[in-house]
Computed example of a mutant assay.
Amino acid sequence: MSENKSPVSLDEDICVHVFTASAAMVGVCITVVGIFQVITTLRSENSLGDDFLTINAILYLITTLLSYWTLRTRKINRNPLLEKLTDALFLIALTCTTGIAGFITWAITLK
């Protein structure tokens, strides 16, 4: 009674998680941009932090759309290249989020 589990089910789970996490991160980036705009307006300062966050939100949006496309086409014709591209872009966006957080933190503390 050994059950053979195929790696396909794991890939399906990962794609769903990338889709939900990317969509949530778009909302997080937009929220932080809004808060950032309020702070910079009150201080009468200009910063690159909100610009970087907007670019990061666009990266997450592209990742969300690609993972949605992967989920929709999975039953018809599975495309492993699209899955790898989606995963790579998600990891790049996560890395950018960390870099932007450091940039904002150190830019605020240096002033």
Rank of each mutant, 00 (worst) to 15 (best):
S47N: 10
L89S: 05
G34Q: 04
L85M: 15
F36Q: 09
I108E: 14
L66G: 00
S6I: 08
G102F: 15
G99H: 10
S2W: 06
L53I: 02
A101P: 00
I108R: 01
E45T: 10
L10C: 07
K75G: 07
L53Q: 03
G49E: 02
I76K: 13
M25E: 05
A101Q: 09
P7Y: 12
L85N: 14
K84L: 12
L94I: 09
S6T: 15
K84H: 07
V18P: 00
K111N: 06
S22I: 03
L59T: 02
V32R: 11
L94H: 02
E83H: 15
S44P: 01
L65Q: 12
Y68G: 06
T63R: 01
A101R: 04
A24S: 12
T41V: 02
G102A: 09
S67L: 09
G99R: 10
V26I: 12
K5H: 15
T31E: 03
A101G: 13
C29G: 01
T98K: 13
I100Y: 01
T97N: 01
N46W: 04
T109N: 04
T64C: 11
A88V: 10
I39R: 05
D50I: 05
E45M: 05
T97K: 05
L81C: 08
T109P: 00
P80K: 08
W106Q: 15
S9D: 12
W69N: 13
E45R: 03
S44M: 15
R74P: 01
E45L: 08
P7V: 11
L89P: 00
L91T: 06
D51Y: 13
S22K: 03
S47W: 03
I14G: 03
S9P: 03
E83L: 13
V18A: 00
T70H: 12
M25S: 04
W69Y: 08
L66I: 02
F103S: 00
T97H: 07
I62W: 00
D13P: 01
N79F: 02
T63F: 02
M1S: 15
D87G: 05
Y68N: 15
D50E: 04
Q37Y: 10
C29M: 14
L82Q: 06
I14M: 14
N4C: 04
C29H: 02
G27D: 11
L85H: 14
I39Y: 04
F103H: 07
Y60A: 02
I108S: 07
P80R: 12
S67M: 09
L89W: 01
N77I: 09
S67Q: 14
N46Q: 08
A57V: 04
I104V: 15
G34R: 10
A107W: 10
K84G: 05
A88N: 12
I104H: 07
L110S: 11
K75S: 13
N46P: 03
V28P: 01
I108T: 15
S6E: 10
R43T: 09
L91D: 12
I92Y: 06
T95P: 00
I39G: 01
I30Y: 11
N77M: 05
G27M: 12
N79C: 11
G102M: 10
T95L: 14
S22C: 08
I76E: 06
T97P: 00
L42D: 05
C96E: 15
T31V: 08
S2T: 09
I104Y: 02
F19L: 11
Q37R: 13
